[in-house]
Each structure stands twice: as C-alpha cells, then as structure tokens.
Write a protein that binds this DNA or RNA. Sequence first.
DNA 1: TTTTAGATATATCGAAGCGATATATCCTTT
DNA 2: AAAGGATATATCGCTTCGATATATCTAAAA
Lengths: 184, 184
Amino acid sequence: MELSATAYVILGMVSREPRSGYEIKGLVDDTTRFFWAASYGQIYPELKRLSEAGLIEGVDAPRGERKRTVYAITPEGRAALQQWLRQPPGIYEMREEGLLKLFFAGALPPEEAVATLRAMREHRLGVAERLRSIEPKALAKDGEGDPFPLMVLRGGIEFNEWFAEWCERMEAQLLDPAREKRSS
Amino acid sequence: MELSATAYVILGMVSREPRSGYEIKGLVDDTTRFFWAASYGQIYPELKRLSEAGLIEGVDAPRGERKRTVYAITPEGRAALQQWLRQPPGIYEMREEGLLKLFFAGALPPEEAVATLRAMREHRLGVAERLRSIEPKALAKDGEGDPFPLMVLRGGIEFNEWFAEWCERMEAQLLDPAREKRSS
DNA sequence: TTTTAGATATATCGAAGCGATATATCCTTT
DNA sequence: AAAGGATATATCGCTTCGATATATCTAAAA
C-alpha cells in the first residue's frame, strides 16, 4: 500500500497517544509546520483512509454533546511508520518568494534590491523568535526521552538565524561592492 | 489584475530576451528551481493568460517545420514585474521529508536515526556540488552587469553546505550525547 | 544508410496540497 | 445575555506537480 508523506505525519502524531483530527492539525501547526504543513482538507480524508486500511483505529470520545473521534495507532500502523522511517528521505522542496525577487532584482535600480533583503531578514528573525518561544515547551518534553522534536526545533532556529545573517551579508555586499573583492 | 508568483517568474525570464515555453522551463530548471519550480502544466497556460492580458507578446519563430512561439515582454509587462519586485515577499514554504523523519525518529531505536541524518547530509552535499558546477556559467554572465543570479546561486551553495554541516553536528551529538552537556 | 536515441516544442491529465470557509457545540469573558 | 473564541468535523475551488502524449528535428551508433 502506498501512503503519502502526510499519512505518515498522521501516523507519527497518533503514535504516542490517541488524538482527534483537530488535535493533529493543532500539533502540526505547532511543530512540523515549518518543514511539513497539513490542512484539514488532507487530515480528515487521510484519517478515513488510514482507518479503512487498519493502520489506525477510531474511538468515539465525545466531550459533552459535541461528538469527537480520537484515533489510535494499531500494531500494523506502527510497523508501517517504522518501515517508512527507515527509508531514505526523498522530498526536498522550497518556495522562497524573497529569493525569487532577489534573482530578478536586476530589473530594478540596484538600491531597491536592498529592500527585498531587509524584508527577508526581518521575516527570518521573526520566525526564529517564534520558534524560540516554543523552545521551553519542547525542552520540557525532552526530559521524557524523545530528543528529536527539540533537535529539529533548534535546527529550525539555527537555520532562520543563519539565513538572516546571510541577508545581512548580502546587503553589505550590495552597499559596498568593492569589499567583496578585497576579501577574496 | 492578480498574478501568481509563477506568472512573475515567466515575466522575469522573458524580460531580457524573448523565449519559448520550452526555453523558460529549461531556464527555471537551471536556476530558480531550488527555491521556485515551475512545470509545463503551469508555464503554457500562464503564457496564454499573460499574452491575453497584454503583458507579453507571442511571435512565431519556427525552426524548420517545427512551429515555435517566443514571447517578449511588453512595456506593461515590465511595469507589472517591477511593481511586483517592489512588494515585500510573502511566500515562504519548505517541505523536507528528512526533517520529518528526524522529528519522528523517537519511534525507532536511537542508532537508526543516524541513518536519516547521513542521508540528509549526502543529499545536501550533492546539491551543493551540482550548484557549484553551474557557478562558472553564472559567473560569466555576472560580468554583464546583473550580479543577482550569481548571488542567489552562491547563497544556495552556502545554504546546502550549512545544512550538511548541521547534519554532521547532530549526528555527533546523537553518537555522544554527553558532549552536548559538556559544551553548554 | 538506416535507426535510434535524445533534444526541442507544445499541451494536458490526474493526484495531491492549500486556504478558506461552513456548520455546530462548547466555554469564558464582558 | 451576548459575544467571542476554542473545539470538532467536513468540503470546495484553486494551484501545483509529475508524468506523459504527440510531433519534429539532430546527431550518433549500428
């Protein structure tokens, strides 16, 4: 059976404890969103498919009058997750409108490209800050034996800070082109 | 008129000289692909739309019996491109299956996560190398006054090398967890 | 010399993903 | 009592992606 990577996100998210579709969406938004997002339009149909395939199992868990279904991973689901984790990763995509604008910046007077770099830098610093604000929560969970979410989160912080620093360097290079040659 | 970012990729690609859809696809694959890809399924319909909107203009330029249309940017198209370049960028997406697998790696015995990090590192080193092989071509064009494609290309090389180095560090951390505490 | 493989050129399809929104219930605050 | 926001499930339209179909041209291999 062929499963999408998003299916494995769901398997991973229910692998420690049963969760509802809504909870999964919230978790994804708090954690993997920066390198793998998922929408309701993916999550709910996928929960149905995984349930029919026997990889997860839905259990009614209403809160008051509002009905609610939480899904738990089955032994087959756990096996499928582990089998997937052992395959080398194959999807690497990026969509960066800032780099695109920088690439075509020759169509504008040079001093205007600086504005794009500044906006990119501000954005990256903002993301880094947001990730930092999540860090204490991830650190708390780290004590329970799973170091990977924290490792990935810190990687995200480092990446955004590295990117911001690159933008700064490129801005300096644009403002003083001679400097590049002096240092090389 | 609302245009997608991919429409501006096309405007940018025909802004220096007229090109066919096939040439645009090839150019994108050689340059912006790493932060903004485009498929034939986007390019050809978009060429039609941009042409109808008067932002580009198609001219028959057959090669022998094979018909061929090259598109040139119009003054309105150039204005639209510049106006877009002046807006702050707003799309930042990433899909990294490797980080996803690392995030869920707690579901496997610890020594197996190392394999994911190694695969990620190999991949990044490979991309960096491929980008380096393009560098001389970009460097040649740099002399003609547009420094931005080369700047973006070198940014891509740096990014991939930074990422590879991060993978290496994380691998070392996994293999010797005590080290992390000693250095902090 | 044939043929075959690969590049050029345009076009379209299905599957997947994304963002927004509809519906409804619950809880907390004003 | 009303309003606003969180919980919960679901769906729709649009964009994008990858693969592929069709056809012509060129260069190399058999």
